[in-house]
Structure formats: structure tokens, C-alpha cells
């Protein structure tokens, strides 16, 4: 169980959080303009990387805010945490 530094509440146990899958996949602004393949790309395709992964987390049993995390999935090291809408850190 890791410790997550919620950008709104501070350090809390992992059990207070919910993982929300890959980050930075924006919902298309005009879904109706997309082909089936393009829509399927948005809908279904997610990365599952061994290594550095950008992902969404929700402090569900706390402030209920969503935020982003950069995590090394091979050892669970959290490289960075930043708010929704903020730019992901480079490297």
C-alpha cells in the first residue's frame, strides 16, 4: 500500500483512493464527427505500461477530487502528482 500525496489534502493511505486509468485522454469535443475507428480509439484503447505511466486518481474517501499521477508501475514509485488541467511534467 502506497502513500499518495493528494494535492488538496496531503499524504494519505492508498486505501482512501481509487485508480482511474490512463490520464490525458480527452473526451472528443465532437464525437459525431468521428469514424467508428477513431471513436473506438478513444473508447477502448488504454496503455498498460511496465514503467512510467500517467494515470488518473481520485481521492474518493477524502476530498473526492480527481488528479493526475506519474507512477513507475514496476516499483510503484510515484514520480509526480499534479492537478487536473495542469501540464504533465516533462521527464
Amino acid at each position: 500500500m502506497f502513500i499518495i500525496n493528494c494535492p488538496f489534502c496531503g499524504e494519505r493511505e492508498q486505501s482512501e483512493f481509487k485508480a482511474g486509468g490512463e490520464a490525458h485522454i480527452e473526451r472528443p469535443k465532437q464525437p459525431t464527427e468521428l469514424s467508428d475507428d477513431e471513436w473506438a480509439e478513444y473508447l477502448f484503447m488504454r496503455k498498460n505500461i511496465k514503467g512510467i505511466q500517467f494515470e488518473r486518481w481520485n481521492h474518493i474517501h477524502g476530498c473526492r477530487k480527481w488528479f493526475n499521477m506519474v507512477r513507475d508501475t514496476s516499483n510503484d514509485e510515484i514520480k509526480a502528482i499534479y492537478k487536473m488541467g495542469e501540464k504533465p511534467p516533462v521527464k
Binding site: G20, R27, R56, R64, K65, W66, M84, G85
Partner: peptide
């Protein structure tokens, strides 16, 4: 509730 909050916070802030 969780799903609605998710959309409000992340897609339609």
C-alpha cells in the same frame, strides 16, 4: 455520483 463528479471535474470543468 462518482461518475458525474468525474465528468464535471475532468471533462467539463
Amino acid at each position: 455520483l462518482g461518475k458525474l463528479e468525474d465528468y464535471l471535474q475532468t471533462e467539463w470543468p
